[in-house]
């Protein structure tokens, strides 16, 4: 009987090994392992065996059965792999065809700049402040040490709604409002739209954006202002950027300065962008004028502060801040 089993095993393995498609495998399974399969018949015929022989033959049959089954499975897998491989050959695509995507929109370039600047100052602990665009002249001018006869108040420069209400010509009134309502330490920047009575040309627009900064606390120094702006310039324009302070005059700060940055195009050697000067005017700044602090209810004997403002300027460089506001119109 053992020889018979061995014979079945041999021929089954042979058949399976030589099979070249799945059908042959299935036929082989039926032929050997099916209900009427050769190996099954042997099991059935075990009735005539002795009780010693029966388990020996039984386990032998099972071993052979497992062997056959495993080989069938193995061969099936081989066929599957071969089939997938064949399929892969036929499924080649042109990966250089365009991707299918949801078209992205974009934010306005000025929003991008403002967002970058906001991020830098938020990282330094600044809040983003905001205020009305239609503003009292008191906030836009008087509290900021700009008395009634000051040239900035001319009707030629500022849009008036009534004698006392204007379209804000600077974001500084936000500073005044914050100083009136918050106690130091104050650290804010206020980005926003401002209005000036300028006709539209290459560098002017009646509507443009400004960003102002204000810090008020005890012992705030001009060195702090320079350090803050230096850090800002490095983050915004690159680590190699240098900052330079020049004396200047603004009604709301004293001492006042104009801050230049080393030209980020030529690195300070002098080029067309910086007009061969190596420096580019960045912003106006200074220590908050004691009159302004006083006007906003902060005691200049105890507190000091600095302020800075970036605005659209005729001679400033296009890449930082002189983008014409309305270029989409």
């Amino acid at each position: 009987m053992k020889e018979q089993i061995e014979k079945i095993r041999q021929s089954a393995l042979e058949e399976i090994k030589n099979a070249n498609d799945e059908k042959v495998l299935n036929d082989a399974r039926v032929k050997y392992l099916g209900k009427k399969g050769e190996l099954t018949l042997i099991l059935r015929g075990m009735g005539g065996l002795s009780s010693e022989e029966r388990p020996v033959i039984g386990s032998l049959v099972n071993e052979v059965r497992d062997e056959i089954e495993n080989l069938i499975e193995e061969r099936k897998k081989e066929f599957k792999v071969a089939e997938i491989k064949r399929k892969l050959e036929t499924e080649k695509i042109d990966v250089t065809m365009p991707g299918k995507k949801i078209e992205l929109g974009s934010v306005h370039p000025i929003t991008q700049i403002i967002n970058d600047i906001k991020e830098i100052f938020i990282g330094m602990g600044y809040q983003i402040a905001d205020g009305p665009e239609v503003e009292f002249a008191t906030y836009n001018f008087d509290k900021l040490n700009t008395p009634p006869d000051h040239p900035a108040r001319d009707i030629q420069d500022t849009f008036y709604i009534t004698d006392d209400i204007v379209l804000r010509s600077q974001t500084s009134p936000v500073q005044a409002r914050v100083m009136e309502t918050q106690k130091p330490p104050i650290k804010i920047i206020c980005p926003g739209v401002v209005y000036r009575s300028d006709s539209v040309d290459a560098t002017h627009s009646p509507v443009f954006h400004q960003i102002e900064g204000l810090v008020v606390d005890k012992n705030i120094s001009m060195g702090d202002l320079k350090g803050t702006l230096e850090m800002f310039a490095k983050k915004c324009l690159g680590e190699k950027t240098q900052i330079r302070f020049r004396p200047h005059h603004f009604p709301f700060t004293e001492p006042s300065a104009e801050a230049d940055v080393s030209c980020f195009v030529c690195g300070g050697k002098g080029c067309r962008v910086c007009k061969e000067e190596g420096w580019i005017e960045l912003l106006g700044c200074g220590m908050v004028h004691p009159n302004v602090l006083r006007n906003c209810g902060i005691d200049p004997e105890i507190y000091s502060g600095f302020a800075f403002g970036m605005r659209n300027r005729k001679n400033s460089n296009g890449e930082i801040w002189n983008r014409r506001y309305a270029f989409i119109i």
């Binding site: 938020i122 810090v215 012992n219 001009m222 702090d224 320079k226 020049r246 001492p255």
Partner: peptide
């Protein structure tokens, strides 16, 4: 403040050392 500006002009704006605000910590956002 005006006197300070005169002092600074001839001490030198370029000699101002850069420091960072050492005030109370504020939460930005």
């Amino acid at each position: 403040a005006d006197v300070a500006e005169e002092v600074l002009r001839f001490y030198g704006y370029d000699k101002l050392e850069t420091t960072l605000v050492s005030a109370d910590t504020t939460l930005g956002g």
